[in-house]
């Protein structure tokens, strides 16, 4: 279950981003995260339910404690260059061209595993937010 490793990586990256947002390396005035949106491709090899479970645990004692997790699923799509076909791969993926039968030239979507967006709340330690 590598979803825990992934959840911990998300927490680490969001905490780094919080320091960037606050312009503060110490993290003293870094905002808490209110919600995190992940973009997860259906071919990324990640189970969203398992990730939700791990995310809650990984957020403990961090700037993300209590943050909501939103998962946007991205369907797999592939393209065949010779005949210009573009199709939904499904899962398990079919990476052979439905028109000419040759192997796909490129997977254009479906392997995403990225943090799309973070919504920030109040700073963790100071009482005067810049906005909100």
């Amino acid at each position: 279950m590598h979803e825990m490793s992934i959840a911990l990586a998300v927490v680490g990256q969001v905490e780094t981003a919080a320091r960037v947002v606050a312009g503060d390396d110490t993290g003293a005035s870094a905002p808490k995260a209110r919600s995190v949106t992940l973009r997860v491709g259906e071919l990324a090899g990640v189970v969203p339910d398992s990730l939700r479970f791990c995310f809650e645990l990984a957020c403990a004692d961090s700037l993300l404690v209590g943050a909501e997790l939103h998962v946007e699923t991205v369907a797999g799509r592939a393209r065949c260059a010779p005949c210009d076909a573009d199709w939904a791969t499904g899962l398990p993926p079919d990476l052979c061209c439905p028109r000419c039968g040759s192997g796909a030239s490129q997977l254009t979507a479906g392997r995403e595993l990225e943090i799309a967006e973070v919504r920030w709340g109040q700073p963790a330690r100071t009482a005067t937010p810049k906005e909100d």
């Binding site: 992934i6 990586a9 998300v10 990256q13 969001v14 981003a17 947002v21 905002p31 209110r34 992940l38 595993l113 990225e114 943090i115 799309a116 967006e117 973070v118 919504r119 920030w120 709340g121 810049k130 906005e131 909100d132």
Partner: peptide
């Protein structure tokens, strides 16, 4: 509320 569009690979 403030939002950061991170677009960062996990």
């Amino acid at each position: 509320c403030r939002v950061t569009e991170l677009q960062q690979a996990v």
